[in-house]
Amino acid sequence: MRISRNPTRSVRIGSIEIGAAHPISVQSMTATHTQNIDATVGQVNALHAAGADIVRIAVDSDKDAAALAEIRAQTSANLSVDLQENYRLAAKVAPHVDKIRYNPGHLYHHEKSRPWQEKVAFIANVAQEHDCAIRIGVNCGSIDPAKKSKFDPADAIGPILESGLEHCEYLEELGFTRFVVSMKDSDPSQVVTINQQFAARRPDIPLHLGVTEAGLPPDGIIKTRIAFEQLIGRGIGDTIRVSLTVPNPRKPEEIQAGRSILDDIYAGRLRSVVALDPTALNIISCPSCSRVENEAFVELAQDVKEMTQYAKNHAITIAVMGCRVNGPGETDDADLGLWCGPTRVNLKKGEESLGAFPYDEILGKLKAELDKIIAQREAVSQTSPIPK
C-alpha cells in the first residue's frame, strides 16, 4: 500500500530520526517504579529487545532523577523522560535521556504564580544544552483549566488543539524546533479529528500518535487500530504508542501490537470497523506505568471488565485509572470512574466524588452505581413519548 507521508521535518531522538521520510517509530513506557533500578533496567531492555525505538520513563521526584542516571548506564535504548508537575526536574534528567516529554496541562501545578512561558523556556534551554528533543504531550483529561475555560464545555477538541498549537509556536519563538507533538484522547474518533486538524494547520511538525487509556487487550488494540489506520493511511503520524493495561511482564505486547498494526496498514490489510458501537458499554483504562501505587490496579481493570459484561449493551463509559496524577481529571468525562491509590479506590460519578473504598469492596460499590444508572435510563426511556 503506497502511503504519501506528510512532509514533516526530521527530529533526532538519540540514535534515530523521526519525521520526514524516516520509518514510523514505535515506543512504549515502563511500568516499574523508577527507583527500582534493576526492575526498570530489565523492562527497558525487554522493550528495546522487542523492537521499541524509544522507551519512556516517568520521573516525579529527585530520587527518581537520581535513579535515572543509573538506568542510563545500563541500557543502550533511546530514553525519553516523562515530566509531571515539577518542570525543574528537567535539569536533573536531561543529561541522561534523549527526549523530554512535558504536558502543558501539568505546568500550572508547580510555581503557580510563574507564567507557563517561563517554564517552557526553562525546559527548552535545558534540552538545548543537553542535546535532547522535546515532546509536547497534550491529553484530554489534563488540560490547563485556564485554557479549558476559554472553550464551550461541549468542545472536547478545541482546548487540546489550541494548546498544542500554542506551545509549538512558543517553542519556535524561542528558536527551538527539535520537537514533536502528541494530542491524545480515549475516543479513537476524537484522536483522528484532532490530529487531522493539527496536521492541516501544521503539516511540518512530526506527530506522535496514541489513544490514551485504550484499555485491556484486545479492546485496547482495536481502539488504537481504528485511529491509526485512519491517520497513518492519510500520511499522518511519525511515531506511535499502543497504550495497553497489562501486567509488567507483558509490557512488550505494546511494541508487538504497534508493529503488527503498522505492518497491516502498509500491506493494505485494514481490519478496523468504521467506528466503535456507540450503543455499547465502553471501558477505558490507562496503561500501567511507574506512577501506579498499587499493581492491583491492572487486576482491578480486568475484574471491572468481567463484572460489567451484563451491561455490555448499554452506552455507559467506565474509566479505571491507576494513579492520583492523572486519575482525578481523566475520569471526569466518564459516567463512572475509578482512580486507584495505594490502599483505596476512589469512585466517581462524572465529576462527583462518591468516596474511597478498599480494593476488596470497590466492585460491589461500582456495580450498585452502574445498576442505578441503568435503571434511571430505562425509566426515562419508558416514560418518553413514542415518536410519531
Rank of each mutant, 00 (worst) to 15 (best):
L270K: 00
G220S: 02
S149G: 04
E293C: 11
S80D: 09
E213I: 05
L366S: 00
S10F: 01
A121R: 13
K92L: 14
D144M: 07
I236Y: 12
L216T: 04
K349N: 12
K305G: 07
P95M: 02
T308F: 10
L366V: 02
E111I: 12
P252I: 03
Y108M: 15
I221D: 00
F176I: 07
G237E: 06
P385D: 08
E254G: 05
K150A: 13
S182N: 07
I134F: 05
S189Y: 10
V26K: 03
D185L: 05
T383K: 11
G233T: 02
P247S: 06
A46G: 04
T245W: 06
A121Q: 13
K367I: 15
D264W: 03
D144V: 08
I386L: 15
L347I: 11
V93H: 01
G215I: 07
P328H: 08
L244K: 08
R101F: 09
F179G: 01
R291V: 05
S149R: 09
L47C: 12
L338P: 00
I232S: 05
E173Q: 13
Q197A: 00
I284E: 02
G337H: 01
S272M: 03
N6C: 01
N248Y: 13
Q84Y: 05
W339K: 02
E306F: 14
I194S: 07
L270Y: 04
I37A: 11
C340P: 05
T317R: 10
M1Q: 11
G355L: 02
A156Y: 15
G355R: 03
P249E: 09
G14D: 04
R202N: 02
I283F: 08
A127V: 10
N103K: 10
D360Q: 15
S288W: 01
A65Y: 06
W116G: 03
A311F: 13
V41M: 09
A375F: 11
A46P: 00
T279C: 13
H106Y: 11
Q197H: 10
T224C: 01
R202H: 09
G164I: 11
D277Q: 04
L89C: 06
T279V: 06
I374P: 00
A199H: 08
I265D: 02
I54D: 05
D264C: 05
D62A: 00
I386C: 13
T279D: 15
E118D: 15
I134V: 12
P358L: 06
E162N: 15
C168Q: 10
H314I: 10
E378N: 10
D60V: 00
E166T: 14
S142I: 03
I386Y: 11
P218N: 06
W116H: 09
K388H: 01
G350L: 01
A127E: 04
A356T: 12
L354W: 00
T193H: 15
L216I: 14
F151D: 08
E253W: 00
D131G: 07
N294G: 08
L161E: 01
M307A: 15
K148W: 05
G350E: 03
L231R: 08
I316K: 05
V126G: 04
P188M: 01
H167W: 14
E118S: 08
D219P: 04
A375W: 10
A91Q: 14
G158E: 05
N313Y: 07
A67V: 03
S381D: 12
R2S: 14
M183R: 06
S163H: 01
F122V: 01
T331W: 07
S353M: 09
A301W: 03
